[in-house]
């Protein structure tokens, strides 16, 4: 069923037993890869070989493999998710590589994302930011009818653009400062734009940006690297929105 043409690739992969292990690169060969393999399926092939040799397979995070759960997290040749526009690494296909290529695979690197093992990192810092205020404080039940507050299409679309974030952390991984401002900005902007979220907008923006700092993320200095790396194409205009919301909060 697969194509006749296959590729052989050299992989230079970060291996690290645990958070306290210094870690190092190991070199592997991926053989028999077709253009239809996804990047993770290519790694599956390598791992199957490693297991058969009795070696530890490369640990990497992945789950839905259709680009929506945000679990996969690999820096491929220096770019989170491999650099194909609006594509997570699980949806990156090997047709973007050619026979004989050497590929560097590294985990997300940031102080806030300590390596758990190999390419797996701990992203609980992102959960901390949401827990600080990435919600509306509505109760289960006892809410108004969905049409009670009208939300014009442009506003709903704007909120949806922001809400597309899958929380993968590529913005942090790509940021020279390891800042999570795009992640935070997207949530702040989504909820600030909607009437349901406006009531808590001021408290939210302060709490979430403080949590960002406390979780060990860096500060945003407007490199816009995050926007380029984001597999959902989240715009840095949402960081600008966060900045505006912060100023509004200062005036309150």
């Amino acid at each position: 069923m697969s194509d006749h043409k296959t590729m052989t690739l050299t992989l230079i992969v970060w291996r690290q037993k645990g958070p306290n292990d210094p870690g190092k690169f190991e070199t592997y060969t991926a053989k028999g890869i077709t253009e239809h393999h996804s990047f993770l399926e290519m790694l599956d092939v390598v791992n199957e070989d490693l297991i058969k040799e009795g070696k530890d397979p490369i640990a990497f995070d992945h789950d839905c493999r259709e680009g929506i759960c945000g679990m996969c997290s690999q820096v491929v040749n220096g770019v989170p998710h491999g650099g194909q526009e609006r594509t997570t690494v699980c949806q990156l296909h090997m047709r973007t590589f050619k026979d004989g290529d050497t590929i560097y695979i590294e985990p997300w690197r940031a102080r806030a994302f300590p390596v758990t093992r190999d390419l797996i990192v701990d992203r609980s810092g992102l959960d901390n930011i949401i827990q600080a205020g990435g919600y509306t404080s509505c109760h289960t039940g006892g809410v108004a009818d969905g049409n009670a507050l009208l939300i014009p299409k442009e506003i709903a679309d704007y909120a949806m653009d922001a809400a597309e974030c899958i929380g993968c952390g590529a913005c942090v991984a790509s940021c020279p400062n390891s800042s999570a401002m795009l992640f935070t900005g997207a949530k702040v902007a989504q909820l600030a734009a909607l009437p349901q979220g406006k009531a808590e907008a001021a408290v939210r923006v302060c709490a979430m940006t403080d949590a960002l700092k406390e979780s060990g993320f860096g500060n945003c200095s407007n490199h816009y690297e995050c926007e380029a790396a984001c597999p959902k194409g989240i715009s840095v205009k949402f960081i600008a929105r966060l900045n505006r919301e912060y100023q509004k909060a200062l005036l309150k």
């Binding site: 509306t136 509505c138 809410v143 108004a144 969905g146 009208l150 709903a156 909120a159």
Partner: peptide
């Protein structure tokens, strides 16, 4: 209604 209250951006 619950989801709208949570800020789910349903199409409008």
């Amino acid at each position: 209604d619950q989801c709208v209250a949570q800020g789910v951006p349903f199409a409008r």
